[in-house]
């Protein structure tokens, strides 16, 4: 094996990543185990966070402000969006500081380092599935009929996962060298949530803003969840295609840039 200053081919790097799938699994399991080992409350937090958010938002936006939801009860209206959004924001929030938070894994041993933010993001999927049970309970409680279009939801899920991985990788890499990014994330994700139809329906966006608004790939996706799960209609596929393309492009950019920066990460200390 030859080690030089030059990088290996991208193909080789991807192959090396797949060779270490067991490590990815192990690190993901570590994240999950540690969170749930720490206290019973931790387990409850995966359920608690989206529920509490939904309750608070329902009271304020549902009761006080009375956001029009087209006849659907506000709690389930908002939860349908909060659930996937929590996964999206959670995956990014976990991934970006993951390298700086695990410097001992970077400076003392080598393995494909993208595994670290990937594991951090994937661990959030576990929370997602737990919170999904609450969703099912809500659907039953509000007697929402199962729509024939619901099969499309997993596709939306895949698109958002790809998007969050791309952003996570890019952010994690840059974050090693520019710590400012780490401080900006919570605020960024909050702003992004307001720019996405989580609390309010897409229909409330004024027509003159629609073009700019729809540049946000998560806009059509979150709205898409509501459409296919609650309303039984399909979203505009051109917007979904746009979101899918943006996600794949961001994943590629994120991964390539990460791998270029990867070998300098241990030099920072």
């Amino acid at each position: 094996m030859t080690i030089t200053a030059k990088n290996e081919s991208l193909l080789n790097k991807v192959i090396n990543l797949f060779k270490r799938y067991e490590l990815l699994l192990t690190l993901t399991t570590r994240e999950i185990r540690v969170r749930y080992r720490q206290s019973i409350l931790s387990f409850g937090w995966a359920l608690g966070q989206p529920i509490i958010q939904m309750v608070v938002i329902s009271v304020i936006f549902g009761s006080f402000l009375r956001i029009p939801t087209g006849g659907i009860p506000y709690p389930i209206f908002s939860y349908t969006a909060i659930l996937p959004w929590t996964l999206f924001a959670g995956a990014i929030t976990a991934a970006i500081p993951s390298i700086t938070g695990n410097m001992n894994l970077v400076t003392k041993i080598y393995f494909p380092r993208e595994i670290i933010p990937l594991a951090a993001s994937l661990a959030r999927l576990f929370d997602f599935f737990i919170a999904l049970t609450v969703f099912i309970a809500l659907m039953i409680w509000y007697q929402i009929p199962l729509q024939s279009t619901i099969w499309f939801a997993p596709i939306l899920l895949i698109i958002q996962i790809v998007l969050s991985l791309g952003i996570g990788l890019l952010g994690a890499a840059v974050g090693v060298f520019l710590r400012d990014i780490l401080y900006a994330i919570p605020m960024l994700m909050l702003v992004w949530m307001y720019a996405t139809p989580v609390i309010y329906p897409l229909s409330m966006v004024p027509p003159e803003w629609q073009r700019v608004y729809m540049l946000n790939p998560m806009a059509s996706i979150i709205d898409g969840y509501r459409k296919v799960v609650l309303e039984g209609v399909y979203p505009d596929f051109s917007y979904i295609a746009y979101a899918a393309i943006v996600s794949v492009v961001l994943l590629i950019i994120g991964y390539v840039y990460f791998k270029k920066l990867e070998m300098s990460m241990a030099d920072i200390i």
Binding site: M1, T2, I3, T4, A5, V106, T107, K108, I109, Y110, M263, S264, A266, D267
Partner: peptide, 15 residues
């Protein structure tokens, strides 16, 4: 460098 943790700025390493 031998462990693959970082890379040389120039030169070659064979392992």
């Amino acid at each position: 460098i031998l462990a693959g943790i970082t890379r040389p700025t120039s030169g070659e390493v064979h392992v």
